[in-house]
């Protein structure tokens, strides 16, 4: 059997879900037999070089670059998975969702207790910077998402079982302990 191709991305996340992938421990050796990684922070491939079987998304969309990247993944992946609370519901970055964006930026760059060096009270506005969105969006509210693996981070066993089931076409059992939101 030829190896399946996997790609991963961390959008508005903390890389904790990627760390949790590493929690599969020695099964990573089996994973290497099963898959080949394409675009991913793991191997630092920046652009897709071939069609991908499974795309794994960590984090929600908090800025224009996240949206672009997510759409790029959707175009290039047969199956897209939302991995973790941030991808599924915005997660901690979405705590700002009830607050107007102007207030958020002013608190972060002008009025907050740790902005001492920013004496001119400049809110970063370089054209190179991605535009921040009005709120943080769950991935499935931007593109179609096929599967969801909850957790903060999702348990390594959940990620492993889901990947193996998906890649080998076998059925997946979901023991109670693996579905957690924290």
């Amino acid at each position: 059997m030829s190896k399946k191709i996997i790609a991963t991305a961390s959008l508005a996340g903390c890389f904790g879900c990627h760390m949790s992938i590493l929690d599969i421990d020695e099964r990573i050796l089996d994973l290497v037999e099963l898959v080949e990684f394409n675009k991913s922070p793991v191997d630092d491939i920046k652009k897709f070089t071939k069609r991908v079987d499974v795309g794994i998304i960590e984090g929600g969309c908090c800025n224009s670059e996240n949206v672009e990247n997510l759409k790029y993944f959707r175009e290039n992946c047969d199956v897209l998975i939302s991995l973790g609370e941030c991808a599924i519901m915005g997660g901690l970055p979405a705590l700002r969702n009830g607050i107007p964006i102007k207030e958020c930026l002013e608190e972060a760059y002008c009025d907050g207790p740790t902005v001492g060096l920013n004496t001119e009270k400049i809110i970063p506005n370089d054209p190179e910077l991605p535009m921040i969105l009005d709120k943080v969006y769950p991935c499935h509210e931007v593109v179609k998402v096929d599967y969801y693996l909850p957790g903060c981070p999702p348990r390594a066993d959940l990620i492993w079982d889901a990947l193996v089931a998906l890649l080998t076409g076998s059925e997946m059992d979901l023991p109670y302990e693996v579905i957690k939101f924290d």
Binding site: I88, M89, A94, N97, G98, I99, P138, H140, P150
Partner: peptide, 12 residues
């Protein structure tokens, strides 16, 4: 795994 309804993120 995910709610089938859109999140409302109310201001509370």
């Amino acid at each position: 795994m995910v709610p089938k309804f859109p999140y409302s993120f109310p201001l509370k």
